[in-house]
Amino acid sequence: MNKIRIKFQKYGPIRYIGHLDVMRFFQKAIRRAGIDVSYTSGFSPHQIMSFASPLGVGMESRGEYMDIQVNSLPAPREGKSVCDVLVEDLRRVCVEGLEPVSARILPDTAKNAMASVAAASYTVRFREGREPGGFCALPEAGRQDKIRAFTGQERIPFVRETKKGAREIDLRPGIFSLVWKDRAFEMLLDASSAGNRKPGHVAAAFFDFLGEPLGENALWITREDLFARGEDGIMGELISLGEMGSADPETEVLHEP
């Protein structure tokens, strides 16, 4: 039995495939690839598979993760590592836009992807023609000043609409970093199950702070990567979920998360 973490990308028209359907897609792809995946026992067995964090419909990502459990690993071939073989086999039966890029073998003691997630990085661009005129017209230094002023606040209240009604949350503690670079925001936000913050909310709060309206669907959001906390506890350094474990158990020492 091995735990495998597979990193995949989601882009292009595939961004409209919902989270549950992405799961269904990979369940079938794993069967097509002939990966010896483990199933739960009981009357309706299903593949042992978990996803780090659901991605909203319409968003692209360069760093999505799913963990699967396999009964056996594929044989290495052509000088490629076990993980590379597995990714290659799986990629062959996937569609463009929903593609595995790398895999790591996790130590048996590793927490699953979802429990590990502490932060997520995003690039937030504006859709063509929907750039907020005021902010974009500022000189570079002026834009940086505005961002500093925004993040310098002690609290950043934001009213979140949910099915149960509106609720005010504080975005500030969940914004680990917010940078403007190359005509886009780069955000590193809390993505833990308790404190998850959405990039769309942060952008909305920012333009609200500027007093500048943001058009509907003005944002084009790409998730770049997901991170876990390192060894030294809750405030430990962030490591990419894709760097945990080992690419080749034969040659490397497993990196305990």
Binding site: P13, K28, V57
Partner: peptide
Amino acid sequence: PERYIGHEY
């Protein structure tokens, strides 16, 4: 929206 985007395997 998945009904209208194609790209199925």
